[in-house]
Simulated assay, not measured.
Amino acid sequence: MKHIRTLLATVFAISLLLTNVQLAAAEDQVAEAQLQLVNLNTASAEELSEVLEGVGPARAELIVQYREQNGNFSSVEQLLEIKGIGVATLEKNKDRIQL
Rank of each mutant, 00 (worst) to 15 (best):
H3C: 06
H3S: 08
I4F: 04
R5W: 07
R5Q: 02
R5L: 00
T6G: 02
L7N: 09
A9M: 13
A9Y: 03
T10D: 03
T10L: 07
T10Q: 01
T10A: 00
F12H: 08
A13V: 07
A13Q: 05
I14T: 15
I14W: 09
I14Q: 13
I14H: 06
L16D: 10
L18G: 10
L18Y: 07
T19D: 06
T19E: 04
T19A: 07
T19S: 13
N20R: 00
N20T: 04
Q22W: 09
Q22N: 14
Q22Y: 15
L23G: 05
A24G: 05
A24C: 03
A25R: 14
A26F: 08
D28S: 12
D28H: 08
Q29N: 05
Q29H: 04
V30G: 11
V30R: 14
V30H: 10
E32C: 11
Q34E: 14
Q36K: 13
Q36G: 07
Q36M: 09
Q36H: 03
L37P: 07
V38T: 01
N39H: 12
N39V: 01
N39R: 06
L40V: 02
L40T: 08
N41M: 11
N41V: 14
N41C: 05
N41A: 14
T42G: 02
A43C: 03
A43Q: 04
S44W: 09
S44L: 09
S44I: 11
S44M: 11
A45D: 12
A45M: 11
E46Y: 02
E46W: 08
E46N: 15
E47L: 15
E47I: 05
E47A: 13
S49A: 05
E50L: 10
E50C: 12
E50P: 09
L52C: 00
L52Y: 06
L52R: 13
E53V: 13
E53C: 00
G54D: 08
G54M: 07
V55H: 09
V55R: 07
G56L: 05
G56Q: 08
G56K: 13
P57F: 10
R59I: 03
R59H: 01
A60D: 15
A60W: 03
E61A: 05
L62R: 10
L62H: 01
I63F: 01
I63P: 00
V64C: 04
V64K: 01
Q65D: 00
Y66S: 14
Y66V: 07
R67Q: 07
R67L: 14
R67P: 15
R67N: 12
E68R: 13
E68D: 15
E68A: 12
Q69T: 07
N70M: 11
N70D: 04
G71L: 07
G71Y: 04
G71F: 02
N72W: 09
N72S: 09
N72A: 11
F73N: 12
S75Q: 05
S75R: 07
V76F: 00
V76G: 02
V76M: 03
E77D: 11
E77M: 04
L79A: 09
L80P: 05
E81R: 10
E81F: 03
I82C: 02
I82L: 03
I82G: 06
K83M: 04
K83D: 10
I85A: 15
I85C: 14
G86K: 12
G86I: 05
G86N: 06
V87M: 08
A88H: 12
A88E: 15
T89D: 03
